[in-house]
Simulated scan of single mutants.
Amino acid sequence: MKFLLIMQVNPAVLEALTEAERDSIMAGHEDFMKAIRDSGEFIATQALADPANSVTVRGTGAVPAVTDGPFLEAKEFMGGYYMVDVDSKERAVELAQQIPDAKFSGLAIEVRPIMFEAGFDM
């Protein structure tokens, strides 16, 4: 079963962390990636730019509208993800709990099953 472990980022929370806490998150991601590669559960990971760098194309009729960012009022955004192939949802949740961001109040990991995929050479 394939899942996305989606890291929900809140810039205010990250800014409030100490440098040592931010460093621990980065080191923790390196350790996490090594562990899931070694276990054979790793497929891919991507880190995404801040939403201030994005635009959204919305259906509004014949010509879709283009607006800044995903949701201007949002405090959290998708900061990146891990794609994993695991035996169960429970294992996906167990892995999500190991992502270092999950240890800090105000940050979260969403566990979402993948229903369809294309473009990955598996």
Rank of each mutant, 00 (worst) to 15 (best):
M1G: 04
K2R: 15
F3H: 06
I6A: 11
I6W: 02
I6Y: 00
M7K: 03
M7V: 15
Q8P: 01
P11S: 08
A12Q: 12
A12Y: 01
L14R: 07
L14F: 12
L14W: 12
A16Y: 11
A16M: 08
L17V: 15
L17T: 13
T18C: 08
E19T: 15
E19G: 13
E19M: 12
E21H: 05
S24T: 13
S24E: 13
I25P: 10
I25F: 04
A27Y: 14
G28R: 02
G28K: 04
G28Q: 05
H29T: 13
K34I: 00
A35N: 05
A35W: 01
A35F: 06
I36K: 08
R37F: 09
D38P: 08
E41R: 08
I43H: 04
A44W: 07
A44H: 03
A44Q: 08
A44C: 00
T45P: 05
A47R: 12
D50H: 15
A52K: 14
N53W: 03
S54T: 15
S54H: 02
T56D: 07
R58F: 12
R58D: 03
R58V: 11
G59T: 10
T60W: 08
T60G: 01
G61A: 00
G61L: 10
A65F: 14
A65C: 05
V66Y: 15
V66P: 09
T67L: 02
P70E: 03
P70W: 11
F71R: 09
L72Y: 01
A74S: 11
A74Q: 02
A74N: 02
K75E: 07
F77G: 02
F77N: 04
G79E: 02
Y82Q: 10
Y82E: 14
Y82H: 05
Y82S: 03
M83S: 14
M83F: 01
V84E: 03
V84M: 12
D85G: 08
D85H: 07
D87Q: 08
D87H: 06
S88R: 09
K89H: 13
E90V: 13
R91P: 07
R91N: 06
R91D: 07
R91T: 10
A92I: 05
V93C: 02
L95S: 01
A96F: 05
A96G: 15
D101N: 15
A102G: 02
K103N: 04
F104Q: 04
F104S: 12
F104T: 15
S105G: 01
G106E: 03
G106N: 06
I109S: 06
R112G: 05
I114M: 06
M115N: 04
E117L: 08
A118Y: 05
